[in-house]
């Protein structure tokens, strides 16, 4: 585990680096300023929780970090690449290779088996069929759902669905796990399971960024960033 080198110079191991990012929806009097100039740096191997109330801009931040949305102004370097310069398809490629998404509502493809869901990002990464199958099975084993490979999302419990989603996020071996309220739809037991998984993944060296409004979730992280009204109001090491 590398320590977090903080300072004005960009270190070689900076995974996420955003500078003065603003995001404005609409224009004129009705314009909504979701982010009002955010700068943030996350190094490889960190476990970061982003906390904030509803409307604080934390989801917008997460969308920008995940290359799902582009900033109105400011710079975003992901693993050394300036995201703003990428074409739509290149951004898709970055999402597929470097980022594993975990959503509050699981977002599994309906009527599609757990295995096929986990295979999907590998398919878009142009892996061979046999490789895909192997890696997807391994990812399912990792989350303890190897025996549910052929089940469809509607045949799985919420906790199981979220574990399939984690397997899917891990399948491509991404550099960052980006989780948006991952336990928002889960009961206490499943929440424990999922958070335990995050702990373990981080212990193995994976960078994890969790967006949440639950203190219980945020406590697990080792760095806590508080967002309010489109600005970062606190950034502290907690563990």
């Amino acid at each position: 585990m590398r320590g977090r080198a903080r300072g004005p110079t960009v270190a070689a191991d900076a995974l996420i680096e955003i500078r003065d990012v603003t995001k404005t929806y609409g224009a004129g009097e009705t314009a909504v300023h979701a982010l009002r100039g955010v700068s943030l740096r996350v190094d490889a191997g960190e476990y970061v929780a982003v906390m904030g109330s509803s409307g604080s801009g934390k989801s917008t931040l997460m969308n920008i970090l995940g290359c799902l949305d582009v900033p109105s102004r400011g710079e975003y370097r992901l693993d050394g690449t300036d995201v703003a310069r990428l074409t739509e398809d290149q951004q898709a490629l970055v999402r597929g290779r470097k980022i594993g998404f975990i959503f509050q509502s699981f977002n599994l493809i309906p009527r599609t088996s757990a295995l096929a869901n986990v295979e999907l990002p590998l398919t878009y990464a142009h892996l061979r069929r046999s490789d895909r199958r192997k890696r997807a099975r391994r990812a399912l084993e990792l989350v303890g759902l190897a025996d549910r490979a052929d089940h469809r999302p509607n045949q799985l419990s919420g906790g199981q669905q979220q574990r399939v989603a984690i397997a899917r996020a891990l399948a491509t071996g991404p550099r960052i796990l980006l989780a948006d309220e991952p336990t928002g739809n889960l009961d206490a037991h499943s929440t424990d399971e999922v958070l335990g998984m995050f702990d373990q993944l981080n212990a193995e060296g994976r960078t994890v960024v969790v967006i949440t409004h639950e203190t219980e979730v945020a406590r697990r992280a080792r760095r806590l960033i508080r967002v309010s009204d489109g600005r970062i109001v606190a950034d502290e090491v907690t563990g």
């Binding site: 799902l68 398809d89 898709a92």
Partner: peptide, 16 residues
Amino acid sequence: TREIGIRKALGARRRA
């Protein structure tokens, strides 16, 4: 639409 969004988040390009 949501499924399309998921697929895009997972790295699906325009062509796919």
